[in-house]
Protein backbone atom coordinates (compact mmCIF):
# COMPACT_ATOMS: atom_id res chain seq x y z
CA UNK A 1 0.00 0.00 0.00
CA UNK A 2 1.55 3.33 -0.97
CA UNK A 3 1.86 6.21 1.43
CA UNK A 4 -0.46 9.20 0.97
CA UNK A 5 2.14 10.88 -1.19
CA UNK A 6 5.21 9.48 -2.86
CA UNK A 7 6.28 6.76 -5.23
CA UNK A 8 3.91 3.77 -5.23
CA UNK A 9 6.83 1.47 -5.82
CA UNK A 10 5.25 0.08 -8.97
CA UNK A 11 7.84 -1.04 -11.51
CA UNK A 12 5.43 -2.10 -14.23
CA UNK A 13 2.73 0.01 -15.88
CA UNK A 14 -0.13 0.75 -13.53
CA UNK A 15 -3.82 0.87 -14.37
CA UNK A 16 -5.92 3.67 -13.02
CA UNK A 17 -8.94 5.80 -14.00
CA UNK A 18 -9.20 9.12 -15.73
CA UNK A 19 -12.14 11.47 -16.15
CA UNK A 20 -12.27 13.42 -19.39
CA UNK A 21 -14.72 15.82 -20.97
CA UNK A 22 -16.88 14.76 -23.88
CA UNK A 23 -14.71 13.86 -26.89
CA UNK A 24 -11.91 12.53 -24.61
CA UNK A 25 -10.67 16.04 -23.95
CA UNK A 26 -8.62 16.85 -20.85
CA UNK A 27 -10.86 19.09 -18.69
CA UNK A 28 -8.17 21.61 -17.71
CA UNK A 29 -5.51 21.48 -20.39
CA UNK A 30 -7.82 21.02 -23.39
CA UNK A 31 -5.63 18.22 -24.78
CA UNK A 32 -7.47 15.67 -26.93
CA UNK A 33 -6.40 12.23 -25.72
CA UNK A 34 -5.76 9.63 -28.45
CA UNK A 35 -8.56 7.09 -28.11
CA UNK A 36 -8.07 3.35 -28.37
CA UNK A 37 -8.85 2.01 -31.84
CA UNK A 38 -9.29 -1.43 -33.36
CA UNK A 39 -8.73 -3.14 -30.05
CA UNK A 40 -5.42 -1.38 -29.39
CA UNK A 41 -4.75 1.14 -26.61
CA UNK A 42 -4.49 4.81 -27.48
CA UNK A 43 -1.05 6.28 -28.15
CA UNK A 44 1.14 7.12 -25.18
CA UNK A 45 0.80 10.74 -24.10
CA UNK A 46 3.74 12.53 -22.55
CA UNK A 47 3.95 16.26 -21.88
CA UNK A 48 7.09 18.30 -21.60
CA UNK A 49 7.52 19.38 -17.99
CA UNK A 50 4.12 18.17 -16.88
CA UNK A 51 2.90 14.85 -15.57
CA UNK A 52 -0.14 12.81 -16.47
CA UNK A 53 -2.72 12.62 -13.69
CA UNK A 54 -5.24 9.88 -12.97
CA UNK A 55 -7.39 8.49 -10.17
CA UNK A 56 -7.43 5.61 -7.79
CA UNK A 57 -11.00 4.58 -7.01
CA UNK A 58 -10.96 6.63 -3.82
CA UNK A 59 -9.99 9.74 -5.83
CA UNK A 60 -12.87 9.57 -8.29
CA UNK A 61 -15.31 11.94 -6.52
CA UNK A 62 -12.76 14.75 -6.75
CA UNK A 63 -12.48 14.69 -10.52
CA UNK A 64 -15.94 13.95 -11.92
CA UNK A 65 -16.45 14.61 -15.63
CA UNK A 66 -18.65 13.26 -18.38
CA UNK A 67 -16.36 10.45 -19.62
CA UNK A 68 -14.52 7.89 -17.52
CA UNK A 69 -11.59 5.95 -18.99
CA UNK A 70 -9.30 3.21 -17.86
CA UNK A 71 -5.74 4.43 -18.29
CA UNK A 72 -2.35 2.81 -18.18
CA UNK A 73 0.36 4.82 -16.48
CA UNK A 74 4.05 4.41 -17.06
CA UNK A 75 5.98 3.43 -13.93
CA UNK A 76 7.03 4.91 -11.61
CA UNK A 77 3.69 6.26 -10.43
CA UNK A 78 3.61 8.95 -7.79
CA UNK A 79 0.73 8.85 -5.29
CA UNK A 80 -0.67 12.21 -4.26
CA UNK A 81 -3.46 13.10 -1.86
CA UNK A 82 -6.32 12.97 -4.35
CA UNK A 83 -4.72 11.61 -7.53
CA UNK A 84 -1.73 9.75 -8.93
CA UNK A 85 0.84 11.05 -11.38
CA UNK A 86 3.19 9.56 -13.95
CA UNK A 87 5.40 10.75 -16.78
CA UNK A 88 3.23 9.12 -19.45
CA UNK A 89 -0.13 7.47 -19.89
CA UNK A 90 -2.38 5.96 -22.53
CA UNK A 91 -6.10 5.28 -22.66
CA UNK A 92 -7.10 1.63 -22.58
CA UNK A 93 -10.88 1.74 -22.78
CA UNK A 94 -13.81 3.94 -22.05
CA UNK A 95 -16.01 2.91 -19.12
CA UNK A 96 -19.33 2.86 -20.94
CA UNK A 97 -21.37 2.36 -17.78
CA UNK A 98 -20.37 5.90 -16.78
CA UNK A 99 -22.80 7.82 -18.98
CA UNK A 100 -25.03 10.86 -18.55
CA UNK A 101 -27.71 8.80 -16.78
CA UNK A 102 -25.20 7.41 -14.28
CA UNK A 103 -23.71 10.84 -13.74
CA UNK A 104 -27.18 12.23 -13.02
CA UNK A 105 -28.01 9.29 -10.73
CA UNK A 106 -24.79 9.93 -8.81
CA UNK A 107 -25.78 13.54 -8.14
CA UNK A 108 -29.25 12.44 -7.03
CA UNK A 109 -27.83 9.73 -4.74
CA UNK A 110 -25.59 12.30 -3.07
CA UNK A 111 -28.40 14.84 -2.72
CA UNK A 112 -30.64 12.18 -1.17
CA UNK A 113 -28.01 11.57 1.49
CA UNK A 114 -28.02 15.28 2.31
CA UNK A 115 -31.82 15.14 2.46
CA UNK A 116 -31.69 12.17 4.84
CA UNK A 117 -29.39 14.08 7.19
CA UNK A 118 -31.90 16.91 7.25
CA UNK A 119 -34.77 14.47 7.80
CA UNK A 120 -33.05 12.94 10.83
CA UNK A 121 -32.29 16.34 12.31
CA UNK A 122 -35.83 17.64 11.73
CA UNK A 123 -37.25 14.52 13.38
CA UNK A 124 -34.94 14.92 16.37
CA UNK A 125 -36.06 18.55 16.65
CA UNK A 126 -39.70 17.46 16.70
CA UNK A 127 -40.37 19.15 13.35
CA UNK A 128 -42.26 16.10 12.15
CA UNK A 129 -44.58 17.72 9.62
CA UNK A 130 -41.66 19.49 8.01
CA UNK A 131 -39.72 16.23 7.91
CA UNK A 132 -42.65 14.54 6.19
CA UNK A 133 -42.91 17.34 3.66
CA UNK A 134 -39.24 16.90 2.87
CA UNK A 135 -39.59 13.12 2.61
CA UNK A 136 -42.52 13.46 0.21
CA UNK A 137 -40.68 15.69 -2.29
CA UNK A 138 -41.00 13.76 -5.56
CA UNK A 139 -38.14 15.35 -7.48
CA UNK A 140 -34.84 17.13 -6.95
CA UNK A 141 -36.41 20.47 -7.85
CA UNK A 142 -39.24 19.98 -5.39
CA UNK A 143 -36.82 18.76 -2.74
CA UNK A 144 -34.82 21.92 -3.30
CA UNK A 145 -37.91 24.11 -2.98
CA UNK A 146 -39.13 22.45 0.25
CA UNK A 147 -35.66 22.31 1.83
CA UNK A 148 -35.04 25.94 1.01
CA UNK A 149 -38.23 26.89 2.83
CA UNK A 150 -37.16 24.90 5.89
CA UNK A 151 -33.65 26.32 5.84
CA UNK A 152 -35.07 29.81 6.16
CA UNK A 153 -36.72 29.02 9.48
CA UNK A 154 -34.90 28.97 12.81
CA UNK A 155 -31.53 29.35 11.17
CA UNK A 156 -29.62 28.69 14.36
CA UNK A 157 -30.93 25.11 14.47
CA UNK A 158 -28.88 22.28 13.06
CA UNK A 159 -31.98 20.92 11.31
CA UNK A 160 -32.41 24.19 9.40
CA UNK A 161 -28.73 24.28 8.56
CA UNK A 162 -28.90 20.74 7.18
CA UNK A 163 -32.04 21.59 5.22
CA UNK A 164 -29.94 24.34 3.63
CA UNK A 165 -27.31 21.81 2.60
CA UNK A 166 -30.09 19.58 1.27
CA UNK A 167 -31.48 22.47 -0.77
CA UNK A 168 -28.09 23.28 -2.28
CA UNK A 169 -27.19 19.69 -3.01
CA UNK A 170 -30.55 18.90 -4.66
CA UNK A 171 -30.37 22.09 -6.70
CA UNK A 172 -26.93 21.09 -8.04
CA UNK A 173 -28.16 17.55 -8.72
CA UNK A 174 -31.14 18.90 -10.66
CA UNK A 175 -28.78 21.05 -12.73
CA UNK A 176 -26.62 18.04 -13.57
CA UNK A 177 -23.72 19.34 -11.47
CA UNK A 178 -23.16 16.02 -9.72
CA UNK A 179 -19.65 16.82 -8.50
CA UNK A 180 -20.93 19.92 -6.71
CA UNK A 181 -23.88 18.00 -5.22
CA UNK A 182 -21.44 15.43 -3.88
CA UNK A 183 -19.14 18.04 -2.40
CA UNK A 184 -22.02 19.85 -0.67
CA UNK A 185 -23.24 16.57 0.79
CA UNK A 186 -19.78 15.74 2.14
CA UNK A 187 -19.80 19.12 3.85
CA UNK A 188 -23.32 18.46 5.17
CA UNK A 189 -22.07 15.30 6.85
CA UNK A 190 -19.35 17.34 8.55
CA UNK A 191 -21.97 19.81 9.79
CA UNK A 192 -24.31 17.04 10.94
CA UNK A 193 -21.73 15.16 12.96
CA UNK A 194 -19.61 18.17 13.91
CA UNK A 195 -16.57 16.17 12.91
CA UNK A 196 -14.33 17.25 10.01
CA UNK A 197 -12.88 13.76 9.69
CA UNK A 198 -16.15 12.37 8.32
CA UNK A 199 -15.66 14.37 5.11
CA UNK A 200 -13.22 11.76 3.82
CA UNK A 201 -15.54 8.96 4.87
CA UNK A 202 -18.35 10.45 2.81
CA UNK A 203 -15.98 10.80 -0.14
CA UNK A 204 -15.19 7.10 0.24
CA UNK A 205 -18.90 6.29 0.11
CA UNK A 206 -19.16 8.34 -3.07
CA UNK A 207 -16.15 6.60 -4.59
CA UNK A 208 -17.67 3.24 -3.81
CA UNK A 209 -20.97 4.29 -5.41
CA UNK A 210 -19.15 5.25 -8.61
CA UNK A 211 -17.06 2.08 -8.63
CA UNK A 212 -20.09 -0.16 -8.20
CA UNK A 213 -22.30 1.60 -10.74
CA UNK A 214 -19.53 1.90 -13.29
CA UNK A 215 -18.37 -1.67 -12.70
CA UNK A 216 -14.88 -0.68 -11.64
CA UNK A 217 -14.64 -2.75 -8.51
CA UNK A 218 -13.98 -6.00 -10.35
CA UNK A 219 -10.89 -4.68 -12.11
CA UNK A 220 -7.69 -5.01 -10.09
CA UNK A 221 -5.74 -1.79 -9.86
CA UNK A 222 -2.23 -2.94 -9.16
CA UNK A 223 -0.22 -1.03 -6.57
CA UNK A 224 -2.91 1.63 -6.12
Amino acid sequence: MPSATGDTGAETPVRAWKFLDSGHIAPFGGHVWPAPAAGSPGEWVRFSGREIFACRIVDLPWWIASELWEIELEAPVRAMETQVAAAAGRLLRRVLAWDSATLHAYGVACAERARDLALDALTRDGRLEEAQALARAPSMLELCRVARGLAGEARERLSSNLAGYGAESSMRASEGAAAAAANITANAVVAALDDPEVFDRERQWQAQWIAERAGLASIPVAAL
Partner: peptide, 8 residues
Protein backbone atom coordinates in the same frame (compact mmCIF):
# COMPACT_ATOMS: atom_id res chain seq x y z
CA UNK B 1 -9.55 18.77 10.00
CA UNK B 2 -9.55 16.66 6.89
CA UNK B 3 -6.61 17.58 4.69
CA UNK B 4 -8.70 17.14 1.57
CA UNK B 5 -11.45 19.46 2.77
CA UNK B 6 -9.01 22.27 3.48
CA UNK B 7 -8.43 22.60 -0.24
CA UNK B 8 -11.62 24.55 -0.99
Amino acid sequence: MSTARRQD
